[in-house]
């Protein structure tokens, strides 16, 4: 039912991100005006601008709507289990440090079921880029409450409204040791692109949170209109504050959103720490580990 519905005009210019995508898997599963596809477009542009050798870039996703990202990118791509893309990525990176490893997954996947792995990979400063799409809800399973759902929002498992405090993810990432922390929304496509590029080129555990509309299960259920209305909300309520204290950037239901690059610092990565430590310990007997 897919391709015959799309009338392709051969004279149209080809989208330059197509070469980064598995076009043989289109159309994708995301709902109209979902923000995930927008971020993938930004990611592809960021890859293009990064100058990275694409044969050495691997992408790892967990489970959920954002978990499907790995499957649409024409890279070595791994669609793992729910919550576990970070430990898979840790194995991939430490086994072959030449690889640039990207984790691309959702808020529920990375900070609920996968929260333990998130904090430990940041603590170890494993060299990877984590892109987290925060749509405030579990989309794939039908709109259940997440650790990111703001107080007052409604989800199918909080039908009377959510009363649980949500995570402030930039603060969590920074306190655990991430060397690069940024937050943008799906409205800020240029900033998202730039942030992803910077994160990809940053050595260490880099983290980009991108707020994205979930029109089907978050906006509709909370009577916030459709995806476009959510984009207007992002546009009108976001305030760019680079270097903001991450303690102050927590989110509230339809409240102000602080966006920007909050952290960009240097810290020895897991592998460098290991090699430096063992080189001192064992002297010439030790050959630095390179995979």
């Amino acid at each position: 039912m897919s391709s015959e519905l799309i009338n392709i005009d051969e004279s149209m210019p080809v989208n330059t991100v197509e070469e980064y995508l598995r076009m043989d898997r289109m159309p994708h599963i995301w709902c109209p005006s979902c923000g995930i596809g927008t971020t993938v477009n930004c990611f592809a542009h960021a890859l293009e601008q990064s100058g990275l050798d694409l044969q050495k870039v691997a992408i790892v996703s967990g489970i959920g709507c954002t978990g499907r990202v790995a499957g649409y990118l024409k890279l070595d791509s791994f669609h793992t289990t729910h919550g576990r893309p970070i430990p898979f990525a840790t194995g991939l990176k430490l086994a072959n440090p030449e690889l640039k490893v990207v984790v691309y997954s959702g808020d529920g996947d990375l900070t609920a079921i996968g929260g333990n792995h998130f904090i430990h990979a940041a603590r170890r400063n494993v060299d990877m880029t984590v892109i987290l799409i925060n749509n405030f809800i579990y989309g794939m399973t039908g709109g259940q409450v997440a650790p990111t759902t703001p107080i007052g929002a409604t989800a199918t498992t909080t039908p009377h409204g959510n009363f649980e405090e949500s995570f402030n993810l930039p603060y969590l990432a920074e306190s655990c040791g991430a060397v690069y922390v940024a937050r943008w929304t799906a409205y800020h496509v240029r900033h998202v692109q730039k942030a992803i590029k910077e994160a990809l080129l940053k050595k260490g555990f880099s983290f980009v949170e991108i707020l994205a509309p979930c029109p089907t299960l978050f906006s509709r259920r909370n009577k916030l209109g459709d995806g476009l209305d959510q984009m207007i909300y992002f546009k009108e309520n976001s305030e760019i504050k680079n270097d903001a204290d991450t303690k102050s950037v927590g989110l509230t239901f339809q409240g102000k959103i602080t966006v920007g690059k909050f952290v960009d610092k240097e810290r020895t990565t897991y592998l460098d720490a290991m090699n430096e430590f063992y080189s001192k310990k064992f002297g010439d007997k030790y050959t630095p580990y390179k995979g």
Binding site: V60, D76, F78, T80, T81, R84, I86, P87, F88, A89, T90, G91, L92, K93, L94, A95, N96, L99, N116, H117, H120, Y278, K281, F282, K285, Y286, T287, Y289, G291
Partner: peptide, 27 residues
């Protein structure tokens, strides 16, 4: 350390059992 191996004590067994699979796909 002296035979070019990588040992990592993960945060739990769930992580351990998938980190090894990432390592396998890296060779």
């Amino acid at each position: 350390p002296l035979i070019n191996g990588m040992f990592i004590q993960m945060e739990d067994e769930i992580a351990s059992s998938i980190a090894i699979q990432g390592a396998v796909w890296a060779g």
